[in-house]
Design a protein around this nucleic acid. Sequence first.
DNA 1: GCAGACTGGTTTGTATTGCAAACTGGTTTG
DNA 2: CAAACCAGTTTGCAATACAAACCAGTCTGC
Lengths: 105, 105
Amino acid sequence: MADDYRGMLDADRLIHEPARLVITTILYTVESADFLYLLRETGLTKGNLSSHLSKLEEAGYVVIEKRFEGKTPRTLCRLTEAGRAAFEDYRQRLKRAAESLSGLG
Amino acid sequence: MADDYRGMLDADRLIHEPARLVITTILYTVESADFLYLLRETGLTKGNLSSHLSKLEEAGYVVIEKRFEGKTPRTLCRLTEAGRAAFEDYRQRLKRAAESLSGLG
DNA sequence: GCAGACTGGTTTGTATTGCAAACTGGTTTG
DNA sequence: CAAACCAGTTTGCAATACAAACCAGTCTGC
């Protein structure tokens, strides 16, 4: 419909935040990524990435597994089912909104 | 490109906010709308709509003209050229991001 | 003609956010 | 063994989003 852009009003704010959109998108495609990989890929600062991940974890969208690889710590992140579902819902809304906006000329 | 969703990292936060996205989208299509029309169309509360409009005005994206229509005040809003440009940039990013996300399966 | 409801908004208060700088616990290097 | 480094977390702060409270003026009932 022509006013599907209104669907953005109900979009999940947790995913809507650009930094987290990028994070979840990466996690959606990759299935598992570590902190440093996300750091490079997103270009965020460490503190920023850390707190966004915590927020996604609290929401149950991401699980964070910490382990040691030899002597160095490694933080693995992956999307939960809830996270995938939330991402897919967001993506759908985004798609509809984009199509709707493209129809404006 | 496949990772155009990263473009959202540089998206204009002023427009990215869902309430303001809806406001600017309406103003983009309508060229001039009054407060009460926007109120109905967006479903926002008055206070909320008022402060979003102020923010858009401060940014130079919207001009707000107050006049009296008989005895009742009327607040007219329209997008400036800068506002249209910002909206168009955002829309472009959104479109690319949506296409990019759609390619994820 | 005036008390109270209504109109069309704005301001205020609060809780949440996004961000980077400062910090932490541990490891490697000189 | 001190300094630098690594992989993150916590802290501090400025900016936000939101709705409730407010405000100036108008209409309505009595």
